[in-house]
Nucleic acid binder design. Structure first.
Lengths: 187, 187
DNA sequence: ACCTGAACACCGTTCAAGT
DNA sequence: ACCTGAACACCGTTCAAGT
């Protein structure tokens, strides 16, 4: 079949979105590519690293141009973009959160968020803590949201706005906390 | 062998702590109990529900008496207790966070946290959003912390304080945000 | 109530060998 | 560079049958 690395990732994303993470197996993916399971190990040394590439590609496809505005607007935009990117694929939040937790990929959102938060002028330790807090908040809320979304996939036209607003409120709490801790250098 | 439900959960916790979540399989657990794998299905209808019972028991073992003090002290105490309970077992954070995400158990911490946060007198919607935010924050930070802790398990005497303080800072940001949004009724 | 024995339908990964 | 074929060492779950 002569697949390239990108073909494998592309097909993996298709299998993920169509059948879900539980059915994204090496054997299933191989079958979908018309290839033996062992052939996949020519492109990736393990399933974990394949999933890391899948997470990175998923995030890249959801990337939007860098937002301008205040650091708070930029931070909110980062969070929204991350949420939207993960929701765009079935089980996207689980894939991204897992890959990030194991430190194998999905690191771009943390960097973007750190840059935005740093715009507040807060001390580096506070920037790091706040960035991680926002990231975990987006991961957690979106994981919940996607689980409910997919559980009640029968009939539901669009998403329960409760989850989205809970996320926005949570982000707001953290941003306010940063502002309160950051003395304006020269008002 | 005539095991009871509690014996199964107890042994599962032992296997988890000794060999980790990846090795906590129905077959492995059955072998450890001196029983056939199919026997476990007399006690639990699925591995998922067994894991839910494991998460609940893990949390119950880490339970401490209800703290007194201000709502902020109580909230901090809830977060610390949850973190400590999950860190007390190998892969504890992953088990609890997963079970909670799927809505099969591990709901006690959210209730306790909601009660503490409600003491602020904030509006119900804010209490709900803030509670979920704190919960996701503790799950995320502790998952990271435990991953690093277990990855560098060789030689490291005690934990890197960076993670713990990041969690405390994150909780502080959220609590400050709640206070700022909650007008004192009669000062 | 609790368990056995046997089966079903799968997994991830390795490795020599092919083109 | 990319893939095959075959194997290894596993999984969760079901179900008739036993005590």
């Amino acid at each position: 079949m002569r697949n390239h690395r990108e073909d494998v990732v592309d097909q993996a994303l298709r299998v993920l979105d169509t059948y879900g993470l539980a059915d994204l197996t090496m054997r299933r993916l191989a079958k979908e590519l018309g290839v033996q399971p062992s052939a996949l190990y020519h492109h990736f040394p393990s399933k974990q690293l394949l999933l890391a590439a899948v997470a990175d590609e998923l995030l890249a496809r959801g990337a939007r141009p860098e937002p301008d505005g205040t650091w708070e607007e930029q931070s909110r935009a980062c969070c929204t973009q991350l949420r939207d990117a993960m929701l765009a694929y079935r089980d996207g939040a689980e894939v991204v959160a897992t890959v990030h937790a194991f430190g194998l990929g999905a690191q771009a959102p943390e960097r973007a968020l750190a840059d935005a938060v740093a715009g507040s002028g807060a001390a580096p330790d506070l920037v790091r803590a706040a960035t991680r807090t926002l990231l975990h908040l987006v991961f957690g809320h979106t994981l919940d949201e996607q689980t409910h979304l997919q559980a009640g996939s029968a009939g539901a036209i669009d998403d329960d706005p409760r989850d989205r607003s809970d996320l926005e409120v949570g982000v707001g709490l953290v941003l306010d906390g940063i502002r309160a801790r950051t003395a304006a250098p020269h008002p």
